[in-house]
Amino acid sequence: MQIATAPGSHWLITALEIMSALFIFLIGLLALWVVITFITDISQTRQAIRRNYPVIGRFRYLFEKLGGFFRQYFFAMDREELPFNRAQRTWIYRAAKNLNNTVAFGSTRDNRTPGSILFVNTPYPTLGENAAPPVPVTIGRECRIPYVASSFFNISGMSYGALSKPAVLALSMGARKAGIWMNTGEGGLAP
């Protein structure tokens, strides 16, 4: 049985046959890629997400790359999530992989809010003659006996056992020169 076709439509049928064959070939290539990727992911030991979720785990990295674009226009910003926002998690991921985790040229933090602390770089820093004296910080103004701290920045408690003796001495001498506190990490303050 032969189907009657309009004159000149033979090229259309040929094009459809070629496109359907190409589609089937591409589906076969995709299936082959999925099988090879599955075997590769399940047998590797470097990335837990790919081993636990073969093939699908690879999309996490794609979505992580595209995440900035989608968050910019549709979803939450880098610092809106709790308890740990995306900026903090990205820093931790990069630090865990021994990658550079510094962000150059700007910040995702809103520095326009009153009380934001800014560290401004200067090519020729003043040594003392032009520096503004530190202003005491009052904590608990409405309290019966408010606490007045002579400095805003101090050295917090840390694992001093992981530092060398010269490092601890340098921190304590710097704290003394700056007139700030240094938490010893042992539940007290260094004299």
Rank of each mutant, 00 (worst) to 15 (best):
residue 131 A to S: 11
residue 109 R to T: 14
residue 71 R to P: 02
residue 129 E to H: 12
residue 69 F to Q: 10
residue 68 G to Q: 08
residue 63 F to L: 12
residue 98 N to W: 14
residue 57 G to S: 05
residue 57 G to D: 06
residue 100 N to F: 05
residue 88 Q to K: 00
residue 125 P to S: 04
residue 117 I to T: 12
residue 139 I to P: 01
residue 130 N to R: 15
residue 109 R to K: 12
residue 96 A to E: 12
residue 70 F to H: 13
residue 74 F to Q: 06
residue 78 D to H: 10
residue 121 N to L: 12
residue 132 A to I: 06
residue 104 A to I: 11
residue 98 N to T: 09
residue 81 E to D: 09
residue 127 L to V: 10
residue 120 V to L: 14
residue 139 I to R: 04
residue 72 Q to L: 09
residue 129 E to L: 14
residue 116 S to I: 03
residue 110 D to P: 02
residue 63 F to M: 11
residue 91 W to E: 10
residue 119 F to R: 07
residue 58 R to L: 05
residue 91 W to R: 10
residue 135 V to L: 11
residue 132 A to M: 05
residue 51 R to Y: 05
residue 110 D to Y: 05
residue 61 Y to P: 00
residue 57 G to R: 08
residue 98 N to H: 15
residue 88 Q to R: 00
residue 82 L to N: 07
residue 127 L to N: 10
residue 72 Q to G: 14
residue 88 Q to C: 00
residue 52 N to M: 08
residue 123 P to T: 04
residue 76 A to N: 07
residue 73 Y to C: 00
residue 55 V to F: 07
residue 104 A to K: 09
residue 127 L to Y: 07
residue 70 F to N: 08
residue 126 T to H: 14
residue 105 F to N: 15
residue 63 F to W: 09
residue 111 N to H: 10
residue 91 W to A: 10
residue 73 Y to Q: 05
residue 55 V to K: 06
residue 105 F to T: 15
residue 67 G to E: 11
residue 123 P to E: 11
residue 93 Y to M: 09
residue 69 F to G: 06
residue 84 F to Q: 09
residue 100 N to Y: 03
residue 51 R to S: 03
residue 66 L to M: 13
residue 81 E to N: 07
residue 122 T to A: 09
residue 98 N to R: 12
residue 106 G to A: 02
residue 91 W to Q: 07
residue 131 A to V: 15
residue 92 I to A: 03
residue 121 N to I: 05
residue 59 F to S: 05
residue 61 Y to Q: 13
residue 108 T to R: 02
residue 87 A to D: 06
residue 75 F to C: 06
residue 114 P to S: 13
residue 108 T to K: 01
residue 55 V to I: 10
residue 118 L to C: 04
residue 89 R to S: 01
residue 79 R to V: 08
residue 108 T to F: 10
residue 67 G to P: 02
residue 133 P to H: 07
residue 54 P to N: 06
residue 138 T to S: 02
residue 111 N to K: 12
residue 122 T to N: 13
residue 93 Y to I: 09
residue 126 T to N: 15
residue 74 F to H: 04
residue 103 V to E: 13
residue 121 N to Q: 11
residue 78 D to P: 09
residue 95 A to D: 03
residue 113 T to C: 08
residue 117 I to Y: 13
residue 113 T to M: 14
residue 84 F to S: 03
residue 67 G to Y: 09
residue 138 T to C: 06
residue 57 G to N: 04
